[in-house]
């Protein structure tokens, strides 16, 4: 099981190592970590910390994409949840109640998406587009267009605090990832989600309650987005409805894709998506540390990401495989008849 997982995420691990190496090249002190104010302080910690929102979104997005769906609304849901939590805490509620209210808002959004997709049968990209557009408006209504600031140490601690020297957001995303991973892999849930993604109709005929399952994955995506939204709001001690989570849905989808998950649904790996999120954050970090003029930011990011995706594409993998075979290098496959594996879809 562990070996299989490792083999599955090997490409992502390699790319992450490369991305971190790139950081090291542009900034040799990249790996240095020291204690400051009782917490770990260093660029590596920043990558884990700043990657938290994308990582959380990627967990929910992986499950949604595994069902052959997509959730474009997560960025807007972040804004809503942040606004709700900020509103609750500024009107005098305890921060745990504010967190609960934010999560509840995320759950409602997720259920709405699930309802549109699973019950009304609207295509996911269209169904979630509705909330992507309207959701930000809802958040702006809640904050009245301004940045709603708060000073509650509990709520802001979720975004900028530290537990046992590590930033709180890191604990949160690692915790959610472990919970989600155990839930889908230690039960049959993961397999059922994959079954729905491969062929919803056959899954239903085989007795899978695909409707409930679809609603559940959008609900999880909404909850993950809400958590990310509360973290982002806590980080700046304010709910910025105009900017919180803006375009984050694209980063989340990118993380899932870099994780080698097919947008056509089916087999998925949450671990690989999380590595994808960390890869994106490492690239962002390298761009910031390089000190290049800002005009290059997006171009560099695009080039790096194209490179990552090309390396992962089935055609390139096949070419590499054939190259190895023809030069007679003992690839991993030393078993007698050259397996047809790479000829089938890249990721089995």
């Amino acid at each position: 099981m562990i070996k299989a997982t490792l083999r599955r995420i090997a490409p992502q691990l390699a790319i992450l190592a490369l991305a971190l190496a790139l950081n090291f090249i542009v900034f040799p002190d990249f790996f240095s970590i020291r204690m400051q104010n009782g917490r770990l302080y260093g660029n590596l910690v920043d990558v884990l910390n700043r990657g938290a929102p994308t990582a959380l979104l990627a967990i929910g997005m992986t499950l949604v994409i595994a069902t052959r769906g997509i959730d474009l609304s997560v960025g807007a849901v972040m804004a809503i949840a942040g606004a709700v939590a900020a509103l609750a805490v500024t009107s005098g509620h305890h921060w745990t109640a504010a967190l609960g209210a934010g999560l509840l808002a995320g759950a409602v959004c997720g259920l709405w998406n699930g309802f549109l997709v699973a019950v009304l049968g609207i295509q996911p990209i269209v169904a979630t587009l509705v909330l992507m557009v309207a959701g930000r408006g809802v958040a702006q209504l809640l904050t009245e267009g301004a940045i709603l600031t708060f000073n509650d140490p509990g709520l802001s601690g979720l975004g900028s605090g530290a537990i046992l020297a590590l930033p709180t957001p890191v604990w949160i995303w690692v915790g959610v990832a472990l919970a989600a991973g155990l839930l889908v892999r230690r039960t049959a849930l993961g397999m059922l989600i994959e079954a729905v993604g491969v062929n919803e109709r056959s899954a239903r005929l085989a007795g899978v309650d695909s409707r409930a399952l679809l609603i559940a994955v959008y609900l999880v995506a909404g909850l993950c987005a809400a958590l990310a939204g509360v973290i982002v709001a806590g980080d700046i001690k304010g709910a910025d409805a105009n900017n919180a989570g803006l375009w984050m849905e694209l980063d989340a989808i990118l993380a899932v894709v870099i994780g080698g998950n097919s947008l056509l649904g089916g087999r998925f790996s949450i671990a690989a998506s999380l590595l994808g999120a960390l890869i994106i954050q490492s690239v962002n970090s390298a761009i910031l540390l390089s000190g290049m003029p800002v005009e290059f930011n997006l171009v560099i990011k695009a080039l790096l990401i194209i490179a990552i995706l090309v390396i992962q594409s089935p055609k390139v993998k096949r070419a590499v495989y054939l190259l190895r075979a023809s030069t007679g290098q003992p690839a991993r496959e030393t078993r007698p008849p050259a397996p047809r594996r790479p000829a089938e879809e890249g990721r089995t």
Binding site: F27, D29, G42, N43, D46, R50, I147, V232, D235, I236, G238, D240, N243, A244, S285, L288, L289, G291, V294, N297
Partner: peptide, 20 residues
């Protein structure tokens, strides 16, 4: 560096400045 006129990015980029 650009902080996109937002608080969140301003904080992230400043963190990076402080380290680099």
């Amino acid at each position: 560096q650009t902080g996109d006129f937002t608080r969140a990015q301003g904080k992230v980029v400043m963190e990076s400045f402080l380290k680099s």
